[in-house]
Amino acid sequence: MTTSTRVAPDAPARPAPPARSFRRGAGRVPYLLLLPCLVVIAALLLWPLGQVVVMSLYDLDSVRQVRGQRPWPFAGLANYREILTDPFFHTVLRNTVLFAVANVVLTMVLGTLVGLLLHRLGRRMASFVGGCVLLAWATPALTGTITWKWIFDDTNGLVTWLFNALPDGLSSALFGRSDWTGYGWFNAPLSFFSILTLVIVWHSFPFIAVSVLAGLKSLPGELLEAARVDGAGPWRSFWSITFPLLRPVFGILVVLSTIWDFKVFTQQYVLAGGTQDRPTFMLSIYSYATAFSPPPKYGLGATIAVVLTAILLIVTGVYVRSLLKQEEL
């Protein structure tokens, strides 16, 4: 026996499902909106980077070869073997890593302390101090470096004048000399890297301070107030509440600082007065000097640039992966 179901004549009609083609078109809209940005990134970043990678695989030692007819003399991985087996490259890599680590630590510590100070100040005083701090960050790298180079000038610099103003006995007892006129502050590697670190930290910490301040403004005040009621001091509150909540912010700032400090070029080039001071070389200026100083070696210079990019990608990948793991936990 079969049964049949009847639909009441006044039952509302079921709406027809949307067309499959319309749903497919809607799914492509975000990619179409991102397409102009991807084209710009490819034209301004990926294409030049690809050209550098290609040049690192060829033996190019003159402008005539670079601008001449193809094919270029293919070298394969010979440039990479030459660079990685060069003892001077290992010295430059050591200088770069130590300099970057020291600058990242100092920049993060000073920027965090200034951010905490701005958070505790009143609105007017915080605006005034924050504006003064941002002047250093807003100053172009070239302008700021020239100013610092004048400050450490061996004849008319402010630092030379201050040391000459010390009593001769005190200066001789502390530093072993009483006359500082003509002293080359940028000649010894230790003093050079100390001044370069001062310049980089001075120019970089305002960004860290403002970023930390923005993160502190987003924290719930109830947690800090509860910790204060429970008797936790500023140090305990920072490490138990503030730092865990702002860990993603600190992670991004560490990544950015690492990238910036590994790529330092303008400040070192200006302070050193060019590419003659090889004991103070780092990867960026080493790549530039190899590619453009006579005799030019464009293939080796491109190889050093690729190695530097690979190091930065590895460092960034490690930080991003650690942040993602923390977010999952």
Rank of each mutant, 00 (worst) to 15 (best):
A289N: 10
F207S: 03
S257P: 00
P140A: 04
G215W: 00
W72C: 01
L313C: 08
F186G: 02
R124N: 12
A173K: 07
T316E: 07
V306L: 05
G233Y: 10
T91D: 14
P87Q: 03
K149D: 12
I311W: 05
R94N: 09
G221M: 11
V264H: 03
T91F: 11
I311H: 04
R14K: 14
R236P: 07
T309E: 08
K263R: 15
P36Q: 02
F262H: 01
G233C: 11
E82L: 14
V320L: 13
L253M: 06
L308G: 03
A8D: 11
V105T: 08
R321D: 10
E327M: 10
R24F: 15
A102M: 12
V105E: 00
V109P: 01
Y298H: 07
Q51W: 10
T145F: 01
A214N: 08
T91Y: 11
A136C: 13
V159M: 10
Q276T: 14
T155V: 15
R236V: 12
W137I: 08
L77V: 14
T258Q: 02
S237E: 07
A26D: 13
R23N: 12
T5R: 13
T85Q: 12
G301C: 02
P71D: 03
A165W: 14
R120Y: 00
R70C: 07
C132M: 14
P71E: 06
L77A: 15
P244D: 06
G273I: 04
G169C: 06
T96V: 09
V201T: 05
L158K: 04
D86T: 09
D86Q: 10
Q268L: 14
R28F: 15
I208H: 00
V92H: 03
L312V: 10
G131D: 06
A291M: 07
Y298Q: 05
F22M: 11
D10N: 13
G76D: 04
S171D: 06
I195N: 03
D10Y: 15
P244C: 02
F243L: 12
L98G: 08
D179A: 11
L106E: 03
M282R: 03
V270Q: 06
S171K: 02
F163D: 02
A173R: 09
